[in-house]
Design a protein around this nucleic acid. Structure first.
Lengths: 196, 196
DNA sequence: ACCTGAACACCGTTCAAGT
DNA sequence: ACCTGAACACCGTTCAAGT
């Protein structure tokens, strides 16, 4: 069916965001261009500027949605692991979900953490990333209540664990994990256990 | 003193590399451009192509030198920590040196680990990064010989620890560590100790 | 309110030509 | 062997103008 080409697109902002998420994983963060997205949407190169202040504005929008998706996954993982199953069950469920997100959307993950300082000025970006961060805090507290490293400061543990998963995400996404390593979820979990 | 402008620069390759390291930390990785470097060297925009296949080739050269510098620092740190001082003295000395490097040259560090998959095709890049990696292996083995997590697989420990420092480097360089955290070397070491 | 077109100041890269 | 200049195909961004 053919659609008559209108002067006004109608839902350009959403079209650009959707197209951006696709282009991100298809062509990589570095290749993402406002002009390219405009062309994909069938609109002039300058039309996006009606909806985003600049390219940076679009990236912040993508990062905010990314943190929202991550927070949702982490909250779900934590809710599904509130039974007994060991002191660190919650932390481990979080690790699994976090790494699964990072590996399934590597370019979005990279975007979220490249120059994040910049995007924390965005309300929704800050709120969503704090939601994700808070999951880890809850999981660590729970583990400590169950006797895991109960003598340690919670904040220090949270940061160390966050660095650990964030580091793993980076190593995996950049293909830095040696070839002979088991890169399946179980294998990575086992490697991480060495430190937990 | 004025230097007569010659047609041949004489040491263009080295000049470009030197200028690139300066421009990297001054203006950031994203702003680094071959044309800009050529202009800084007082040479035409296409002259660099006599010395580097393309921009990528220059980036690999920078990454290779970066890994060489990192490996040197780590080897020095390890050599200076071979006394007694606890089972994990070597590992901790490595962490300190690694984070100091990452924080003193954040943009170079980012370059080294962004798309590293690409640069591992370079011999010197691979060799130097393996030198650095090998320091960690030695430190972990030493710690295990002294009783630290002796029952764990060395490879798993090494990867987990690497992820940990690499993660901290990312969090620190992206200003993601909460404001109320002690970001001095001692404070970070204390936070990491929670997990060691 | 939303989009276009021309224009400006940048990029990386190729290639024939100059020294 | 090393460098230049013109040329091509891209960028982000501004701004006056069109619907």
């Amino acid at each position: 069916m053919r659609v008559k080409k209108r002067y006004h697109h109608g839902a350009l902002r959403q079209t650009i965001v959707d197209e951006a998420f696709k282009a991100l994983e298809r062509d990589g963060l570095e290749a993402l261009s406002l002009r390219g997205l405009a062309a994909s949407a069938g609109v002039s190169k300058t039309a996006p500027y009606r909806h985003f202040a600049d390219k940076h504005g679009l990236l912040v929008t993508l990062a905010a949605e990314g943190f929202g998706a991550l927070a949702g996954l982490l909250e779900g993982a934590l809710a599904g692991a509130d039974g007994p199953g060991g002191a660190t069950a919650g932390v481990r469920a979080l690790f699994r979900a976090y790494l699964q997100f990072a590996r399934s959307r590597p370019e979005l993950y990279k975007l979220m953490f490249s120059r994040l300082g910049f995007s924390l000025h965005s309300e929704t970006c800050r709120i969503n990333s704090e939601r994700a961060f808070h999951c880890l805090v809850r999981a660590v507290r729970q583990a400590q209540e169950r006797g895991w490293r109960a003598d340690r400061e919670t904040g220090a543990l949270v940061l160390s664990l966050w660095a650990e998963v964030h580091g793993w995400a980076g190593l995996l996404n950049d293909d830095l994990v040696p070839e002979n390593t088991d890169k399946n979820p179980q294998g990575i979990e086992k490697a991480m256990e060495a430190i937990l």
